[in-house]
Each structure stands twice: as C-alpha cells, then as structure tokens.
Design a protein around this nucleic acid. Sequence first.
DNA 1: GATGAATGAGACTTCATTCAT
DNA 2: CATGAATGAAGTCTCATTCAT
Lengths: 207, 207, 207, 207
Amino acid sequence: MRVQQPRALERYQRILDAALRVFSRRGYHDSSVDEIAGKARTSKGGIYFHFPNKEAIFLALLDRATARLLAKIDEAMASQTDPIARAEAALLAVLRVFAKHRALARLFMVEALGAGREFHSRMADIRSQFAAIIQRQMEEAIRQGIIQPIDTEVASHAWFGALNEVITSWVFSGRPERLEDAYAALKPLLMQSVGLNHRSDRPVPER
Amino acid sequence: MRVQQPRALERYQRILDAALRVFSRRGYHDSSVDEIAGKARTSKGGIYFHFPNKEAIFLALLDRATARLLAKIDEAMASQTDPIARAEAALLAVLRVFAKHRALARLFMVEALGAGREFHSRMADIRSQFAAIIQRQMEEAIRQGIIQPIDTEVASHAWFGALNEVITSWVFSGRPERLEDAYAALKPLLMQSVGLNHRSDRPVPER
Amino acid sequence: MRVQQPRALERYQRILDAALRVFSRRGYHDSSVDEIAGKARTSKGGIYFHFPNKEAIFLALLDRATARLLAKIDEAMASQTDPIARAEAALLAVLRVFAKHRALARLFMVEALGAGREFHSRMADIRSQFAAIIQRQMEEAIRQGIIQPIDTEVASHAWFGALNEVITSWVFSGRPERLEDAYAALKPLLMQSVGLNHRSDRPVPER
Amino acid sequence: MRVQQPRALERYQRILDAALRVFSRRGYHDSSVDEIAGKARTSKGGIYFHFPNKEAIFLALLDRATARLLAKIDEAMASQTDPIARAEAALLAVLRVFAKHRALARLFMVEALGAGREFHSRMADIRSQFAAIIQRQMEEAIRQGIIQPIDTEVASHAWFGALNEVITSWVFSGRPERLEDAYAALKPLLMQSVGLNHRSDRPVPER
DNA sequence: GATGAATGAGACTTCATTCAT
DNA sequence: CATGAATGAAGTCTCATTCAT
C-alpha cells in the first residue's frame, strides 16, 4: 500500500513499533493483529490498510530492523581503518543495539526462527548479510597480511554463531547483567581463533 | 501418560516418531494433532490418552531426543581420554546425529526456539546441558595444563554457538553437502580460540 | 467427510434442513454459518466437521434437493404412459413440490442463480436435467406421431422457462394463491405451442 | 445524488458504466466499491459523493438499463402496427440488446435475482413492466380478433419466461453462438401457443 | 481403551461506510 | 469536490480439547 499522506506514514511507523513490542513479547503466532492494532492506537482495519496480512507486518519489521542495524554497523565501522578493528566494531555495534533493545534481540534471535517456513529464506538472507560483513573484513586482513589465510566463510559464520549464542543466552537468562560485558570475554577467543594474539592484536607465530 | 503395557508403550513411541516428522516439517504451530494422529496410525482420542495436550507431546519429544543425543555423546566421549579430544568427540557426535537426522536438527535448532514462551526455559536447560559438557572438558584441560586458563563459561558457549550456527545454516541452505565436512574447517578455529595450535594440538606459546 | 456413526448422519441431515431454511430466507451471501449452526442445534465447528466450507453446504443442499425432485418426477411419470401425459405429470410434480415447499422454490429459482460464479455450472447442469426430461417425452411423442416434428431442444427449454417464470413470479408476489392453479392456465398454451389442441389433446391439423 | 454540473454528470455515468462491468463480472456481493471506483477512474469518496451506498449504485444501474431497454422496445414497436408483429418486435429488441451486451444480460438475468432481498421488489416491478408490454399487445390482438381470447396474464408471463430461459441458458453456456438465432426456433412455439399458425400468422381454426 | 464426532474460542481478513485533509 | 486513510462489524474457517459410544 503506497502511502501518501504524512499522517499515514507516521501511523505506519507506529504499527511497526507496536508490532515489535507485541511480537517480541508473545512470539509471532501468539500475537494477534488485534493487539498490535490496540498498541498502535489504531484499528484492525487500519493495519490492513497498510499491510496485506500479518506476515507482511513481520517481514516489514524485520526489514526495518535489519536496515537500522546495518546502518549502525556501517557507522561504527567507518570510524576504524584496521580491518580487524572494523570487524570488532561491527560486532560491538550489534551487541550494543541488542543490549539497548532487548525486544529487537528477541525478535531476531528467537521469534524470527520459529515464525514459520515463510520467514526462513528471509532470515537466511539476513544471517548471510551479517556474516558477509565480517567475512569481508577477514579477507581484507588476510590481504594485508594481518592474519594467515583461513577459510573465511566458515570463520565468519563461527564468529557470528558465537556472538549469536551469547546474545541468545542473554535473552533467555538475563546474564550477564550488561550484555556488552560479554564481549570482553569473547574477544580474545575470537582473535585467537583466527591466529591473532589478543594482547598485541598481532599474529601468533607458528612454531 | 503413565505407560506400562507393551502395546501402549509402542503406540507412545509411534506418536513421538510421528510428532518428530510433523513438527520438524511444519513447525510447532502449523502442526495439527490430527496430522500427528494420522501419521501415528491412531486417532485424536488415542493421542490424548497418552498426552495431556499438544505441548506435552513436544516436550516429551524434546526430552527423548535430548536423552538420545546425550547418550550418543557419552558413548563418543568414553573412547577418548584427553579432555580436548573428548570435547571434540562430543561436538562430532552431535554433528553426526544431526547430519543423519535432519528433522531432529530442525527440531532443535529452529522449531524449539520459536514454538512459544512455554518452551524457552526448557530449551535454556538443554542448551546449558550441552555447553556444560564442553565446559567440563575445558576445565579439565586447564587443570591438566593443556590450555591456559580462560573463561570457560564464555568459551564453551562460544564453541556451542559456532557449532549451532554451522548446523543452522546447513539446515536452511543444505550446504555443505555433508555436514560433517563443516567440522574439518571449524576445528582449527575452535582449537586456536583456546590457544591450541591446531597442527600439534599443543599450546601456542605466548610471545 | 465420511460419516460413520448414525448420530452423525442424522446431524448431517439436520444441517442441510437448517441450511435450506436459512439460505432461502436470507439468500446465500447474507446467510451466516453461525445461523445455520444455531438452527441445526449444533456448533460452527460441528458444521465444519461435515462440510469443508459454506459453498459445500449449498451445493450439497442443491444436490439433495435435485435428487428428491427428480425422484418425485420419476414417480409421477411412472403412472402415465402417453408421452404428453408424462411430460405434463413431470411439470405438475415440480409445481406441487414447490407449492408445498416455497423455501425450496426460492432456493432453486432465486438464490442458486445469484449465489456466485461457482454455482453457475452446477445450476446449468440441473436446468439441463429438467429440460432433458421434457425433451425426451417430446421426442417420444414425435416418434409416436402424436405431435409434428419440432425443435425439441428449444421447445423443452421454452416449456421449462414458462414454468420457471410462473413459479418465480409466484415466489415473489405470492400470486396465484395456489401455485397449482397456475398450471390450469398454462397448460393450453404449452399444448398449443407444440401443435396440440388442448381440448382434445390431439394434433391441430395444419391448414 | 443530485447531479447537475456537466463534470459531475459525466462522472456519474462513468461510475454506472464501471459498475455494470464489475457487477456483471463478479456478481453483486463479490464486487467491491473499491474496484468500481478504480474502473471509474475516481475514488471511493468520489463514489459516495454520487451515491449513498452500494445498493443505490446497483439500483441506479438497473434503472438506467431498464429505461434504455424500454426505449429500444418502444422504438422497435413503433415501426409495426399489427399487435402480434409489435409483440414480436419487442421480444426481438430485447434479444438484440442482450446479444450485444452480454454483461447487461447477466445483470438482469442472474445478478439482479440473487443480489439480495432488497432488490426483489424492484425486480418484480421490472419483470412486470416487460410482461405488461407483451400483455397489452395480446389484448389488442384479441380485441382485433386476431387471436382467440386467452388468459393474457399467464400467456404474457409464459412468453417472457420462455425468452428468459433462452437468454439465461445462453448467458451460462454461450449457446447458441448468435443469440438472435434462438428466436427463429422460438417464434413458432410462441405463435402456436396463442393459437396462431406460425406459417401464415393466422389463427389455427379450432376443430 | 479407542474412535469418531462435536465444541467453541479465537484467528485472520474483508469491506461498506465515514472522516480528515 | 475529491482523495486517501481509517474504522469496526461481521464473516469464514481452524483446531486444541472434550465427549459419547
């Protein structure tokens, strides 16, 4: 539905805001369009003017959140030049956004997976986008001789997975208190995994 | 629920087998008790004789699958003595079971997460159990001086997360063709991440 | 839905009875499944156990009514041997059934037409069946030399149409008081239209 | 509703044109005001400026179509003097209009009936108007001694019904290819039904 | 014990109608 | 005048759960 009036645009955003709250609280299936409408201070019909169906709300939400997350990542990376520092900045940016918006974390880490078949390909896309960002930095690091050649596809997925798991268990358990603290413990593992000495951020010499 | 007679026991298992097929194909919410009944060659009433509700089927299935997986892990670890080798054996055992039963992988990696609030605490438990197995081996390795002291809680979660991600992306994309191949690429990363030279499986000397 | 228990069969019929009442009173679109359920002393779910959707209820009703009407026609025709008398008997049988069950008349004459695209081919079938009965008798009459050769396809449709119109205007206006009276006035027209002198039921000699 | 300005009048007609297309394609209930608005190159609000509700659009359309049809009939009858020839001219005029505008035929023959209770009395009126035209000619023919006295009310309805049926089955089946061909076969039946020899258009002498 | 049948709450979705700009 | 936007009632259908045989 192409929206033309500014009032409508605002309501469109309000619906997505409400959807984020509801979906992340109840999960996709247990969320009702009625509740989203209520929280968005609009009516069921108002929702269906902007979205063709419930699935589309979820996808739009996912897309908006992904775009915002990627923007934050770009911004964070821009302030670094060293590829490893850039990769780190990306990870930290993700962590910070999720730490600030736990609902968003739940959306990406939990609900998006189990919401149904229809979302899997979209989620696979999103996961790929994030992994690819890390992968690109790893390849640049290899090119610059900062790290030894490795299988960057697997490595980037492993980094991404490690981060995911930390976030997910935080979503479920609430530990650590400050999600960002987790990064301090995770960082040396990630660095060493690609052959970097985490103290010097310099390669570990092979024996 | 209380099952004693052999006929009943057999039907109970048949229901779980059917449930695994249906849940992993359609996801929790889109699976109907009717379809499970059909695939288990019984009736809706028959299901409700054995289980109080749909949720209980899913939980019983999760429990059975977890127990079987843990048994496989125990068995695999029993043939190793070196703690790092034991940890590796555990990871490989998980990978092999999932590689053989993709439905099971989907159940654990995808459906269990998004099935709804009710399952989250149970899933958190299960994740902890797996991470704890790895954590114990890491601690033993530290005790034996094989690796330097590290934050084993974070490290074990990171290992688990990396493995998860590899499995999940395999579930979604079907790549790599043989899931076990992924381990070959993953292993050096994991080893190095805890400060082991993957070629010698010996510690990387700090500079 | 295959029904096995006698209780279910009875309810199936009760649903159709209720559907006839509701559809003929409100029309297809303005009838709600809820109201049919209420009138059938069952629940919405009960209806959907027996029928896959609202359309199927309507079609089943149409089929049952058609079968009953055709049976009445067969019965009425069986008591006559002369083809013209048999055709007349068929028309009168239709008239009598509709006169007795005005709801049925409304169903066939009004609701079935406007219920929607999906019903058109079924209705065309039904119309053909009725016209074909008359057509067969006309052809037999020609074969026996009772009437002159005519285009029996058009003639049977014309007879059927004339009858329809009389019934339809009765459905709408309630005139004549007794629908069967209409036949007395219609009969001579029909007879003459195929070249029979209505007084003698013998052919009108061409000049 | 009150339309005076030329721009408004033109839009009013455009809405009716669009409504005819939409209603005859989808039926009354499955037509949405939105689609009519789209096809009329206006907006929902634009429609509701001209019509108080959807029903009013349909009725206005019915009225406009009826008026045009009656005008065609008048025109056709004007060129004849013999009452039987005039009746025939009327029937042929109807047939020709419908043959040319199948959408119109569908509107009158199918949608108008099943559109709902609200339209029944209006449709009864319209049917009466058509039947009355034929009835008047029949009475004139009787007065002039061209045909024997008959029940003109029933006879006119029978003629009208026969014509209806031919048109309806053409709407549904598309046969005959040219609707006008149907009249050739129908004419002798109608003539004979009122006691006219179709070859000479002269009365059939009673024996 | 087991099965087919029934229930009923609740979900999504549509759309005629109204309203604000 | 016209449009896009919003409303809200109502409808069909699903399905976990319960019940009667």
